[in-house]
Simulated scan of single mutants.
Amino acid sequence: MTGAGIAGIGTDLLRVNRIERIYARHGERFVQRVLGADEQLVHARRTARDPRRGILYLATRFAAKEAFSKAIGLGIHMPMTWSRVQILNRRGGAPEVHLSGPLKDWYDARFGQAHVSMTDESDMVAAFVVIEGRPPAAASDAQPLSKH
């Protein structure tokens, strides 16, 4: 961490069968509502290889977005929307948060780095998010006080 401290923590625990039921009822509409464009591509690839892997991917991302929304204190209220948060894996496999649109601007004005951890079992998934506070402005960035 950068020394700015922790600004928020969020966690979510989810039964996979909840996501299976929603997916069975709404299919791709649910995927498009919850996942961003890059996540949708990963979901499609995983589903094509093994439908169960697709469901687990959808469930872990759903849980991570819930945890993120709790950590920033908004819940699922504007500017927070499901598709403006993407949880994508770095080359080494570690997940990282990618924001877009008005949520990115809102977030960048308030917070520093976001850290996310996810895990899945056959029947449950969990996600944990830690949000860093904004780093203090460097002394050279400080504006002098105006004199009246």
Rank of each mutant, 00 (worst) to 15 (best):
A37V: 12
P95K: 03
R134Y: 13
Q40P: 03
P102K: 08
D38R: 14
R110Y: 01
P95H: 00
G36K: 09
D108M: 12
R134K: 12
P135M: 12
G3Q: 07
R91H: 14
M1Y: 05
P102C: 03
L35R: 02
I6W: 09
A139F: 12
Q113L: 08
G92Q: 14
E20K: 10
D105R: 09
K70C: 04
K104I: 03
K104H: 15
R18P: 08
L14Y: 07
A67S: 10
V16Y: 05
R134P: 03
G75N: 11
V31Q: 11
R53H: 15
G5Y: 08
L58M: 03
R29L: 09
A114G: 12
R110H: 07
A37K: 11
H26E: 14
R15C: 05
L145P: 15
V42P: 04
G27N: 08
I76G: 10
S100W: 10
G93D: 08
I22A: 15
D50R: 05
V16G: 02
A139V: 15
E66L: 00
Q32G: 07
L56K: 06
R21V: 10
V42S: 09
A94V: 11
R110T: 00
G93A: 05
P51H: 10
Y57L: 02
L35K: 02
K65P: 00
V85T: 07
A137E: 12
G27K: 09
R52N: 06
D38V: 15
A67R: 02
D12Q: 00
R53D: 15
M124C: 07
P79Q: 00
S83D: 15
L88N: 07
I131C: 01
A4H: 05
A71W: 09
L56M: 05
P51R: 08
G27Q: 11
Y23V: 06
R29T: 01
D38G: 14
G10V: 06
R25A: 04
I131L: 00
T2I: 10
L41M: 09
F68K: 03
G112T: 04
G101L: 00
L99I: 04
A44K: 06
A44L: 13
M1W: 09
I22N: 07
G27T: 11
R52F: 10
G10M: 05
S117K: 01
V130N: 03
Q40Y: 09
D38T: 14
E121A: 11
S122I: 10
V125K: 04
V125E: 03
A94E: 15
R52I: 06
R25T: 11
M80D: 05
D38C: 15
V42W: 06
R84D: 12
T47H: 14
R21W: 05
V85G: 06
Y23P: 01
I9H: 09
L88I: 14
D38K: 12
Y57N: 00
L99F: 08
Q113N: 14
A67Y: 05
G5K: 10
I19V: 14
P136D: 09
H148T: 14
Y107V: 03
V31T: 04
W82Y: 06
M1A: 13
F62D: 00
A63T: 07
D12V: 02
G92S: 12
Q40H: 08
A139C: 08
G36P: 04
M124Y: 11
G5P: 00
P79F: 03
V97I: 08
I131D: 03
A64K: 07
I9S: 03
K65R: 07
A139S: 12
R110I: 00
A109D: 11
V116F: 02
A59Q: 06
N89L: 13
N89M: 06
R91L: 13
